[in-house]
Deep mutational scan, measured.
Amino acid sequence: TRVETATETAWISLVTALHLVLGLSAVLGLLLLRWQFPAHYRRLRHALW
């Protein structure tokens, strides 16, 4: 049971790290898009909202 718990903890930390990385890359990508294509971003936002 001790090994299982350790594996579970490792998986949880791995998944958390993955989610953090994905979230950060998504935010960075959005910022980059907004910085590179302001007109396109505004049009996209206008279409979405």
Rank of each mutant, 00 (worst) to 15 (best):
T1R: 11
T1P: 02
R2T: 14
R2A: 09
R2N: 05
R2G: 09
R2C: 06
R2P: 10
R2E: 12
V3L: 08
V3T: 01
E4M: 15
E4D: 05
E4R: 06
T5W: 03
T5Y: 03
T5S: 01
T5E: 00
T5C: 01
T5D: 00
T5Q: 00
A6D: 10
A6F: 04
A6C: 13
T7S: 10
T7C: 02
T7K: 14
T7Y: 09
E8R: 09
E8K: 12
E8Q: 06
E8N: 12
E8T: 14
E8M: 06
E8G: 10
T9D: 08
T9E: 10
T9P: 12
T9S: 10
T9H: 14
A10M: 10
A10G: 11
A10L: 13
A10Y: 10
W11V: 08
W11C: 08
I12D: 09
I12G: 08
I12R: 11
I12E: 06
I12L: 11
S13T: 12
S13W: 15
S13N: 10
S13K: 10
L14N: 09
L14G: 07
V15Y: 06
V15R: 07
V15F: 11
V15N: 08
V15W: 08
T16G: 13
T16R: 04
T16E: 03
T16A: 11
T16W: 13
T16P: 04
T16H: 09
T16M: 10
A17F: 07
A17Q: 04
L18I: 13
H19E: 09
H19A: 15
H19Y: 12
H19I: 15
L20H: 02
L20N: 00
L20T: 10
L20D: 00
L20E: 00
L20G: 13
V21Q: 01
V21G: 13
V21S: 05
V21W: 03
L22C: 10
L22K: 02
L22S: 06
L22P: 03
G23W: 14
L24W: 04
L24E: 01
L24H: 01
S25I: 12
S25W: 05
S25R: 01
S25N: 05
A26N: 02
A26Q: 03
A26R: 02
V27D: 01
V27L: 13
V27M: 14
V27E: 01
V27R: 02
V27N: 01
V27W: 06
L28N: 02
L28D: 02
G29R: 00
G29M: 08
G29E: 00
G29V: 15
G29I: 13
L30C: 07
L30W: 07
L30M: 10
L31T: 12
L31S: 09
L31F: 15
L31M: 08
L31W: 14
L32C: 15
L33H: 02
R34V: 08
R34F: 08
R34W: 04
W35M: 11
W35A: 15
W35E: 03
W35T: 07
W35C: 11
Q36M: 12
Q36F: 07
P38A: 12
P38F: 06
P38S: 11
P38W: 06
P38C: 08
A39Y: 09
A39L: 11
A39N: 12
A39P: 04
A39G: 15
A39F: 09
H40V: 06
H40Q: 15
H40R: 13
H40L: 09
H40Y: 12
H40T: 12
Y41M: 15
R42P: 04
R42W: 08
R42Q: 06
R43Y: 05
R43Q: 06
R43E: 05
R43H: 05
L44D: 02
L44N: 01
L44C: 07
L44E: 00
L44G: 03
L44V: 11
L44S: 03
R45V: 06
R45E: 02
R45W: 06
R45A: 06
H46K: 04
H46V: 04
H46W: 03
H46F: 08
H46L: 08
H46N: 15
A47Q: 05
L48W: 07
L48E: 02
L48Q: 00
W49F: 00
W49E: 01
W49G: 01
W49S: 01
